[in-house]
Write a protein that binds this DNA or RNA. Sequence first.
DNA 1: CTTTGGATCGTCT
DNA 2: GACGATCCAAAGG
Length: 201
Amino acid sequence: MTGPASELVVPGRPVDRGHLEIEVTEVAPWLLGKVLVHGSRAGRIVEVEAYRGEDDPASHAYRGRTARNAVMFGRAGHLYVYFTYGMHFCANVVCGEEGSPRAVLIRALAPLTGTAEMWAARPAARRPADLANGPAKLCQALGLDRRHDGADLITGDLGVWLVDDGTAPPESPDVGGRIGVSRAADRPWRFWVPGDPNVSR
DNA sequence: CTTTGGATCGTCT
DNA sequence: GACGATCCAAAGG
């Protein structure tokens, strides 16, 4: 599904790339409330985690550039999709300056549109909140995989967009340690919308 | 409700 | 050759 932004299934427009080219720990909470779109499917971002390249032992880029993490080293506004546990994909928004590997892992979405497709893509889901309340679940729900690694979320070259529909980030997001990492998990770089039923775990 | 272990393979040591 | 930025079903309380 490619096409101009006027074909977006949600109101709003792609975010300004410049808003992503700053400190990753500031971008992460700013992304709460934005909308991730793939074709007819869309969900509002309700939980994220920041990963800060060379400073961060938990980051895929901690030990330098490889074929896998190359997108993290590129320009802000691109999608870094990685494969893990032999069966799952997770999606990140690349941010910061070009050459400095920073990214925000999208951990949970509140489903907005295309929910029939999401249910079909997620047969294990029992409740609406099960559709996208985890980083691999939301990739399944939206149909994101290795083909979308490197997609430009501002131009929508691969049918994937990051959209601002006017919803403001929470004034005081909940903050905590990161989940599922064995190193530097205590850094308070996980942010979520207080009380949202779609937040993971 | 919580805990536990299996699935499954690309990536880097 | 080991280990994941995970998910799910099954078993136990």
